[in-house]
Structures are given as C-alpha cells and as structure tokens.
Amino acid sequence: MAEEHKIIFTGTMGAGKTTAIAAVAGKNMLRTEAANTDSSVAKATTTVGFDYGEIALPNGSVLRLYGTPGQARFAFLWRILARGALGLIVLVDNSRPDPLADLAMYLDNFADLVRRGVVVIGVGRSDTHPEPSLDSYYRFLESRQLMLPVFEVDVRESEHVLMMLDVLLSMLEMSDCEDETHG
C-alpha cells in the first residue's frame, strides 16, 4: 500500500532549509517565498508558508520533505508538521547572536521527536563563525541529557545534506531497536 512519510527541516531564517531541501528534492520542490521584510537578516526572500519537496519511493510511496518557516511565531505550524514525522533536521546558523538559544527553542518545540532521538543538528557558517564550537554544542546537549549528532555543514553541498539524512535514518533504524525492546 502506498504510504506517505515525512522528514522536517527546521531552523532560523536564513539557516538554509530551502537550500537543503532543494539539494535532495531537485525540481520536485515547491517554495512559498516572499520578499523578506526583516532587515536583520541579509536575504532577499524568506519562506512564509513552508517549503515542500517530495521524493517518490520505488513501492509507490512518497517521502515528503518539509521546511518550516523559521520565525518563532510559526511554532503552531511546526507542531502540526511534526505530527507523524520520521525525524527532524535542525539547521543552526552559527553567525547569529545566540545559536545555542536558537537550538534550544527548536528542541523544545519538537520535544516528541527529540525524545525519540530522531534528530540531527547541522551547524552552518562555522567556517566564518567558529564559536560556539562543536564541543560547546555537545556540552549544551549533555546539559539536557541528550546525545544527538551535530555536524558542521554547508547545505549547498548535497553530500552534507545526504549525510545528515543518512545519519537521521540510522537514528530512526536504531530507535527501532529501542522501541521493540521496550515494547
């Protein structure tokens, strides 16, 4: 039977959600962009609804990739999108004033996926903004008793996006063990 599966990309405005989805979905992508009116972020357009890309699976099912709008006022939409999702990729922009606070906000708002451990964190612009370091991210996660993968990535590189997706799928696969262990 054909099924629908979804993976969510979230992160602040300009973190690269649209680019990441385009890197794997290619032409099969719908963008809902509008002119950016937030002068604090240097980009011409921003996502006002959500980005959507889809990949057909060999058995007739489909994988849907959703990119959430970045701003916190859309948190209600994040929770709707997260329902039934296989996993979450959080893209953090290291050039922002407090990337760890940004991360905290997304972890709080996607608590169910975080609890299931099906989350991968991609840190962008660490080449120009090396702080917080990966060590700081891991310390931050440890303070929340979380062990999630964190990678320095450039989402313009499709290999980086695929690597995050593969790690996410591995986390999903291994969460399978745990689910079945604990019933």
Partner: peptide, 16 residues
Amino acid sequence: GSKRSLVQLLRRALGI
C-alpha cells in the same frame, strides 16, 4: 521489522 525496511527503501530513493 517494517521500520528497517522503510529505512532501506528511503536510502535507495535518496541515492544513499
């Protein structure tokens, strides 16, 4: 189980 099969299916579709 089914989740593992799904993961393999997704990997193939993504070209991983």
